[in-house]
Amino acid sequence: MSQYLVLTAMGADRTGCVSELTKLASECGCNIMDSRMAIFGHEFSFIMLLKGDVREINQLEAKLPALAHSLDLLTMMKRTSGYKTLDISQYYQAQYSGIDQPGILKSVTSFFAHHNLDISSLKSDISPQTNMMSAVIEFTVNETANIDTLETQFLELCEQFNVQGCIKQIKHQ
Rank of each mutant, 00 (worst) to 15 (best):
S2T: 10
Q3I: 01
L5R: 11
T8Q: 10
R14H: 07
R14M: 11
T15K: 15
C17M: 07
V18F: 12
V18Y: 07
E20G: 03
A25S: 14
E27I: 09
C28I: 06
G29M: 06
G29T: 00
I32K: 04
I32Q: 05
M33R: 03
A38T: 15
I39P: 01
F40H: 04
H42Y: 08
H42Q: 15
S45L: 11
S45P: 09
F46I: 07
F46S: 04
L49C: 05
L50P: 09
G52D: 04
E61N: 14
A62E: 07
L67F: 03
L73W: 00
M77V: 10
M77P: 05
K78C: 08
R79W: 02
S81T: 06
T85R: 04
D87Q: 10
D87A: 02
I88A: 12
S89H: 13
Y92N: 05
Y92D: 09
A94C: 06
Q95M: 07
Y96D: 02
G98R: 04
I99M: 02
D100R: 00
Q101A: 05
P102K: 00
I104N: 01
S107P: 00
T109F: 00
S110V: 00
F111M: 07
F111A: 07
F112K: 03
N116F: 00
L117P: 09
L117Q: 07
D118R: 06
S121C: 11
S121Q: 13
S124T: 11
S124V: 04
S124I: 04
D125S: 10
P128F: 01
N131Y: 00
N131P: 01
A135D: 01
V136D: 00
I137C: 05
T140K: 07
V141L: 06
V141K: 09
V141S: 12
N146T: 03
D148S: 11
L150G: 02
E159W: 06
F161R: 02
N162S: 13
V163I: 11
G165R: 02
I167R: 11
I167S: 06
K168N: 03
I170E: 14
Q173F: 15
